[in-house]
């Protein structure tokens, strides 16, 4: 007969214990969010501001041109809502890690048995909650202010969103790696990197609209294919699985590279004793 584990003693190694650790990290970040209201801006105010800005822009473009206006509204609002999947997933994991450096909790964590992937998993788990709140508010805002209902695009949005989620997490691993290497001075990258990725990904327009010189960079980004697939869906076409496949493959490769980079930077962090920056 299988005996019940005494919950006051440590679990044996395994998925159950990893899940327990991930939940502990996730709950810690939930406390931080709830108890410091200014951090709620990321998941409430900024998403709504973006919906207002891009929705208004679409309305302006559409003045006197009903069909063009509808298309612009679709591109801009669907684009910004799905862009927030990349943004929220990236920023949640990056700032989750930065929170440990701001509160000088990094050394406390580094000497515990938590594994790097358990920690990142815990922050990403919490990030999912932030993402649901942020993107949910955008969907409501788009509907209430501009009568734009993203759910009319159907389930085709799901695989596109999955690619964007993976890219967001991959970028956050790069950001954490850079902060480990260069210290607090590199924190601005957590926000700044998104302003580079956004225009190059063709979130609101086909990348043919970009200057010729930067198009190769755009072609190398998995997000470009995800947003190209999204525009097709907005135009009423069937989901372009080829684009989704390229995007997914690119996101997978990017994730592997990002994980390798993070592990390398963590080794360097330990070798050079950079933890003393935060102690």
């Amino acid at each position: 007969m299988k005996t019940q584990h005494d919950p006051t003693t440590p679990l044996r190694p395994g998925a159950k214990r990893s899940w327990l650790r991930m939940r502990a990290v996730s709950r810690r970040h939930a406390y931080v969010l709830v108890r410091s209201p200014h951090r709620l801006f990321d998941v409430t105010l900024w998403p709504l501001v973006d919906v207002l800005m891009f929705g208004s822009l679409a309305s302006f473009i559409g003045t006197g041109n009903a069909s063009g206006g509808k298309q612009a509204a679709g591109y801009l609002l669907a684009g910004i809502i799905l862009w927030h999947i990349v943004y929220q997933s990236q920023i949640a994991v990056s700032t989750g890690f930065l929170e440990e450096t701001w509160s000088r909790n990094l050394l406390n964590l580094m000497v515990t048995p938590i594994r790097e992937m358990e920690y990142v998993g815990g922050v990403a788990l919490f990030g999912m909650a932030k993402l649901v709140i942020g993107v949910g508010l955008m969907m409501i805002g788009g509907f209430v202010f501009f009568s734009f209902n993203i759910t009319t695009l159907g389930l085709a949005v799901v695989p596109i969103a999955a690619v964007l989620l993976l890219v967001g997490w991959a970028i956050s691993l790069f950001v954490i790696g850079v902060v480990l290497r260069y210290g607090p001075g590199a924190e601005a990258l957590a926000w700044g990197v998104m302003f580079v990725v956004l225009p190059l990904s063709g979130v609101f327009y086909p990348i043919d609209a970009l200057p010729r010189a930067v198009r190769p960079i755009a072609l190398a980004l998995p997000t470009t294919y995800a947003f190209a697939a999204l525009r097709g869906v907005v135009d009423g076409e069937a989901l372009n699985w080829a684009y989704v496949g390229i995007g997914a493959g690119g996101a997978f490769v990017l994730s592997l590279l990002a994980f390798w980079f993070l592990v390398s930077m963590l080794k360097l962090f330990r070798r050079r004793g950079y933890v003393t920056r935060y102690a």
């Binding site: 584990h5 006051t8 440590p10 679990l11 502990a24 990290v25 810690r28």
Partner: peptide, 12 residues
Amino acid sequence: MMFGQIYGIPDP
């Protein structure tokens, strides 16, 4: 509670 669970104790 967080650190207890990181050390693998479900109910610390």
